[in-house]
Structures are given as structure tokens and as C-alpha cells.
Design a protein around this nucleic acid. Structure first.
Length: 581
RNA sequence: GGCCCCAUCGUCUAGGCCGGUCCAGGACACCGGGUUUUCAACCCGGCGACAGGGGUUCGAAUCCCCUUGGGGCUACCA
């Protein structure tokens, strides 16, 4: 691991209202490892929704590092933005992490010495440090409204300059605060950024330097009294003894500010940072949960058919006409359930972004974790498909890639196929049952023994959804089979398919007991007798009992369906298509 | 616009720090063939990349600079 964690260089003699901030000094911090041998990492999501792929990747890398080094992994909920928090989000994130197999040593539901793990419950702690900063003149009050700030920003933009908050020549006093409050002005607190150059030594990017003059004084306490991310994160990382912070590149620009804060608070050595590359989606930018509503919006706009009723769709989503209008204009985004209901109504599938989306599509966590781990990281040799323990053993934080990577669903499918083959049967059974439950499949009715058999006869399946689709016919009523038109045309109505089906029926009816072997012998004999390939006799049978040309091996399919039901389905098919051409 | 990051097959990547062993390796995808009761799986083969331009050097995918392209951030969000 790299030695110097970071270097803060401040040039010149700078005074902040009489208080010397830093005098032309170069502070070198020794290796984090030297002072704290045990690695402590964390995943700190904000509870605004489901865990998405990007978050899962961040959590995974932090978890992997902790596991690899025998360290500790903490889950901390950054719920300081009351407006954005959604009530069930924390539970959703917890469920998603558990599904992936990512467990935490400290955090919600398991607790630990650093409790509470919800930032909204740590107000006193932040208050203590903010007082310290205020007293030292390293933080100061501000009273501008959002509108005023917006105006200043607009002016800067008009001049093609970046907006930097101008620190007042004389800092507001407590008296000014009282006055502002009396006048109903919002009160926020900004960090007084010291002047100079901050160099961060990133585990994946190397040295990156920033001029603090271009960063400006950022807000650390909001007008509602809650800390902003940049402040709370620094306090908690310090208090919780975090040694390594692995996060997305989108946080790179926050790092100098956080390090300066770390320094100002006298926290000593900051953690080692590793800014991962970003995961890009097929459509271009950062993989984002916005893609689902965007896809839906596009689909709605693409509907030009006359019988399509927009109001009806709005009703499905529980939206008013105005809300629908806003959504289409891109001004608002409905809830997840509303989005999903509308997508279902339109019969379109939304891109999988959240971890649950993949669960519902039939992917297994082992494959997800393996695939996500290889997005921006590699072993260095040619190993790719690996079980979890091997992944942990192979993990090396210094091998993270610098460049962004595209989330390729095709490759995920390939990984899922491999893991489906590798996984012990009991584990697969558990995954399959969970899957059947979440998609509310009729197959869920089957007992474990049957389920295990279904898994076995679907060997080579790519997803759990494949297994479900292939075997659902067993749990459908005999007269409710949905026939695939193409399959009927090609298999039953052509080449005497129906005639062959009748022959098969008679042979089957004559069999005392159905075994896979018996069925196979019978079908093969029939094919030979008529000098045709097995396909010619098997396919009509397959279509008759499943309605489609896709099914598990025919011998198993028939055996599992049973003689009575098979005959009934053959009769139904013969009757149904006898007069069709 | 400003600041920051990145750049090898369509995609994920190995190699780059320690320049020659790389006319660039693997995987997915794709194409062709095989196996076959369907789909999937499986087997064999093929296509396919060092963004461009300048340097440095006997020699550059590897080091330096520029251009171009992509991405991130630019909130009283995290």
C-alpha cells in the first residue's frame, strides 16, 4: 500500500481575521497502516431508494477490502437530507445488501461501539465540532437565501466563471445571527477554506492537486441545522476510525474540502482514499436510477397509436393529469411503484438498475457480486468467474482501474450462467424459491424435491427466469395452455405433426407406467418406425403439452406431467387444431 | 464555461510504474462449423484494439507534450 496518505501544502502566510491559519508549511502524514493496523471501511448510503448497481459496487469493494485484510466493515446511514429520505429506503438497502451477501460488523440492526449509525441521530456530535470550528474562526455564519445564492451563481455563469462564495471581510457574530433569525433569514455555516494547494494521494489516481481558491467556502451546516454530507462524513469517518474510503470518482472533488476539514479539526491522519472509476450505462453517462423513468417517458412519448389513452395510463400510476404532464416534460418523477405499474401496463421492460431489479430478472447474487467486482478491477491473471471466497482472496485494492467501464448486461448473463452451474444445489434451491416468491410464480407451489428436479432438468439455463419459464407448464391448468402461434404452425400443422401426435398419444396411452426411459424408448422406436428423426415425433408432443417449442428435455417433461395430464393436453391440442390449416 | 479524471478488440480487461520476450493475451458478444428431442448448455474455428499528431530513444502500447474524444463535479444532495 502507498505510504504517504496525503500531503497538505499551504503556501504563504495566511491569516483568517487575525488568526493564523497555516504558516508556509508542508505537513506530511505517515502511512495510515503504521498508526492503525486494522483496516476499517464503511459503506455510507443515503436512504433515498433501493440499492443500485453503483452503490452495490462501492459497498462491495469496501467489504472486499475489509474481508481480505481481516478488517471491519461498517454500514452507516447518511440521512441528513430530510427532504430526500424515503421511509422504507433503509430497510430496502439492508435487504439488498443482505441478498448480495454483504454483511456488516457495525451498523443498523447489528449495532456496535460507534452507535448510532444514523447521522440524523448524531446531531450533538456534529454540534460539538461545529462550535470548535466557529470558535477558531475556521467556520462562519451566512445568511443568504437560496434565491440570492442562485443569483450570484447566475452572474458568475454569465461571466463564464465558476461561482466562488465571497467570504465577508468581517465575519458575522452571534449577535448578527440573532438579528438574522429575527428577520427570518436562513442561517447556514460555511467552512473557511484555507488558501493553498491540496494534494490528495489517491490509491487509484495517484497524486491529484487542487487549488483551494477554486473550491471556495462550502456549507457545512444547513439552515435546518443538519450537517451537509461533506461535514458529517468527516466527523464520522474520524470517530469510527475509518482507515480506507473507497468511493466513486464523483467524490473526487469533495476530497480536498474534506481533507482540509479533517486538518482543521485536528483529526490527524485522514483515511486513504481510493476513487473508483464510474460505471457507465449503455446510453452514455453514469449508470443512474433515473434511467428507469427515462425509459418509461420515452416509451410513452413514442406511443402514437390512436387507441392509446394517456389518462388511463396516468390512472394506472395513480397520477393526476398534471402530474403526468410534468413527468412527460421531465419536470418530475413519480414513485417507483407508479413507474413500475405504468411500465407493466404498457408491456415494456425497464432497464435493470437497482439490485432488486436483477433479483426479479432471475440473476443470482453470486453472479452479481462476481460481475460487479470485475467492473473496474481484475485479478491480473485470467481468472474471471469465481466463487466469493476466491474473490476475497484475490482482491487487491491497488489493482483498481482508472478508466470508466460500461455495464454490459450480456456479460452478466454469461456470469450468471456459470454461477448457476457452479453453485451447490441447496443454495440454488434457496435462490430459486426466493425468486419464485418475488415474481409470484405458480411454480412456487412445488415442493423442494420437485424444485430440485426442475433445476436439474433445466441444466444450462442462463437465469432463474429461464427455469421458471421452461417449467411453468407443469403448474398450468391443462385447458389453459397458451399456444405459441409460430410453434403450432411449424410443428403441428406442418409435416403431419398432428398425425404423428395422435400416434404418440396411442403409444403413450398403452403404457402402463411412465418412466423417462420408457418414454424415450417409445419415442425413439416410433421415430425409427417412421424413418424420421426424433425431433419429428418429440416436437409435436412438446408443443401439445407446453404450447411452445421450448421446454426441458421431453422425456422428463412428459414423465413429470404424468400420463393423465399429458393425454388430456394432447387431446386438447388435436381437437383445437384439427380443423386449422 | 470553470475545475478534475480517463483513453488497448463492439464490451470488460491483461500488459504500461521496471521501453525490446506484444506483428498485443484472456473473457463476453458476434460470425462459421460440430453435437443434438426444442431452447439453453457444450466442443472446434474465425473476426477483432494500442484515438490522432509530435517528441525522447538504437527501439514505445509502455515515458513526455499537444490535439481530439469520453466521463465526473460545479447544490443549504449525498
Amino acid at each position: 500500500m502507498t505510504s504517504a496518505a496525503f500531503t497538505l501544502i499551504l503556501t504563504g502566510l495566511k491569516y483568517l481575521f487575525g488568526v493564523p491559519v497555516m504558516v508556509d508549511s508542508t505537513l506530511r502524514h505517515s502511512s495510515v497502516q503504521a498508526s492503525s493496523p486494522r483496516v476499517v471501511t464503511r459503506f455510507a448510503p443515503s436512504p433515498t431508494g433501493y440499492l443500485h448497481i453503483g452503490g452495490a459496487r462501492t459497498a462491495l469493494f469496501n467489504w472486499l477490502l475489509a474481508k481480505k485484510t481481516g478488517g471491519k466493515f461498517i454500514l452507516r446511514i447518511e440521512d441528513t437530507d430530510l427532504k430526500r429520505n424515503t421511509p422504507t429506503a433503509t430497510q430496502q438497502v439492508i435487504d439488498d445488501l443482505r441478498w448480495l451477501g454483504i454483511t456488516w460488523d457495525e451498523g443498523p440492526e447489528v449495532d456496535g461501539p460507534n452507535a448510532p449509525y444514523f447521522q440524523s441521530q448524531r446531531r450533538e456530535t456534529y454540534d460539538k465540532y461545529i462550535r470548535q470550528l466557529l470558535e477558531q474562526g475556521r467556520a462562519y455564519y451566512c445568511f443568504e437565501s437560496t434565491e440570492e445564492l442562485g443569483q450570484l451563481r447566475g452572474q458568475a455563469e454569465a461571466q463564464k466563471k465558476g461561482f466562488i462564495y465571497q467570504r465577508p471581510a468581517v465575519l458575522p457574530t452571534e449577535k448578527d445571527v440573532e438579528k438574522a433569525k429575527a428577520e427570518g433569514k436562513p442561517v447556514t455555516i460555511r467552512f473557511a477554506m484555507p488558501e493553498g494547494t491540496i494534494i490528495i494521494n489517491d490509491l487509484v489516481r495517484g497524486e491529484v492537486s487542487f487549488n483551494t481558491a477554486e473550491l471556495g467556502d462550502f456549507i457545512i451546516i444547513k439552515s435546518d441545522g443538519f450537517p451537509t454530507y461533506n461535514f458529517a462524513c468527516v466527523i464520522d469517518d474520524h470517530l469510527m476510525g475509518i482507515t480506507h474510503v473507497i468511493r466513486g470518482q464523483e467524490h473526487l472533488m469533495n476530497t480536498p474540502g474534506q481533507q482540509a476539514l479533517w486538518q482543521a479539526l485536528g483529526f490527524g491522519n485522514p483515511p486513504q482514499y481510493a476513487h473508483m472509476s464510474v460505471t457507465i450505462s449503455e446510453s452514455g453517462g453514469k449508470l443512474s436510477k433515473r434511467e428507469r423513468p427515462q425509459t418509461l417517458r420515452k416509451a410513452i412519448k413514442a406511443r402514437t397509436d390512436t387507441d392509446f389513452n394517456l389518462n388511463e395510463l396516468a390512472g394506472v400510476g395513480g397520477l393526476s393529469a398534471d402530474e403526468m404532464k410534468d413527468f412527460l416534460k421531465g419536470e418530475s418523477v413519480p414513485d417507483v411503484p407508479a413507474i413500475e405499474a405504468m411500465a407493466k401496463y404498457l408491456g415494456i421492460s425497464l432497464p435493470e438498475i437497482n439490485v432488486v431489479d436483477f433479483f426479479k430478472s432471475g440473476y443470482i447474487p453470486e453472479a452479481m457480486v462476481n460481475f460487479i467486482a470485475l467492473l473496474g478491477w481484475s485479478t491480473g491473471d485470467t481468472r474471471e468467474v469465481m466463487p466469493l471466497d476466491e474473490l476475497i482472496a484475490a482482491f487487491d485494492i491497488t489493482r483498481l482501474t482508472k478508466s470508466n467501464s460500461l455495464f454490459d448486461r450480456g456479460k452478466l448473463v454469461a456470469y450468471n450462467t456459470e454461477h448457476l452451474k457452479m453453485l451447490p444445489k441447496e443454495k440454488l434451491l434457496a435462490h430459486f424459491k426466493a425468486y419464485l416468491k418475488i415474481v409470484d410464480s405458480p411454480v412456487a407451489k412445488a415442493d423442494d424435491e420437485t424444485l430440485l428436479r426442475l433445476i436439474k432438468i433445466c441444466e444450462g439455463a442462463r437465469t432463474l427466469a429461464d427455469i421458471e419459464h421452461k417449467t411453468k407448464f407443469l403448474f398450468t391448468a391443462d385447458d389453459r395452455i397458451e399456444f405459441d402461434e409460430k410453434a403450432v404452425q411449424k410443428v403441428l400443422l406442418k409435416d403431419n405433426g398432428l398425425a404423428m401426435l395422435k400416434l404418440v398419444r396411442d403409444k403413450l396411452a398403452a403404457m402402463a407406467e411412465l418412466t423417462e426411459q420408457g418414454i424415450e424408448d417409445m419415442l425413439r422406436a416410433l421415430a425409427e418406425e417412421h424413418k424420421v428423426g426424433l425431433g419429428k415425433v418429440a416436437q409435436p408432443l412438446r408443443v401439445a403439452i407446453t404450447g411452445s417449442t421450448i421446454s426441458p428435455p421431453i422425456f422428463d417433461s412428459v414423465q413429470m406431467l404424468g400420463k393423465e395430464r399429458t393425454l388430456k393436453r394432447i387431446d386438447n391440442a388435436v381437437q383445437k387444431f384439427a380443423d386449422t390449416k
